[in-house]
Amino acid sequence: MTALPKPGDSLPERTHKPDNVQLFFYNAALWNAHRIHFDLPYATDVEGYPGLVIAGPLMGDWLGQCVDDWLGENGVLLNLEYSNRGAAYIGETLTAGGEVKTLDAATGEATLDLFIRNAAGAVITPGKALVRFALAGA
C-alpha cells in the first residue's frame, strides 16, 4: 500500500491530440454517425464549426483514464462526473489533469477535481471524481 494522497496533490497530466483516424474509430465503436465528427464540409458550412468536432464523451473518457491511471491498483473509482462546456476540434492539443480536493483518512475516500484544458488554457470539460483507496490492513 502506498501512502494516501493529500489535498492539493496533482494528478499526472496527459496531452491528447486526436486525429481523424482516432475520431473515426471512436465514433465507429459507438455507432455514432453525427456528421460534425467526420464530414468537414457539413461541420463547417452547415453547422458553422471551425473544424471537425471532437466527441464530448471521448473527453469524458480521458478524464476517466486520468483518474484510473493514477489510481492503478491502489484504489477504485466510485463516481465520475463531467460536463462538456466547450467544443474542441481536430488539430487541437488537449490536456487532461486534476487535483485531490479532499481525503477522508478513515474511509480512504478522496474527491478529485478534473479538467480537460485546451491550448489557450480554457477548461472545456470540467469534472469531478470520487475514489476509494485501499487502507493498510483493511
Binding site: P57, L77, N79, L80, E81, R85
Partner: peptide, 9 residues
C-alpha cells in the same frame, strides 16, 4: 448545447 454525465460504479 452542453451535456454532462454522472456515473456511479
Amino acid at each position: 448545447m452542453a451535456g454532462g454525465l454522472n456515473i456511479s460504479y
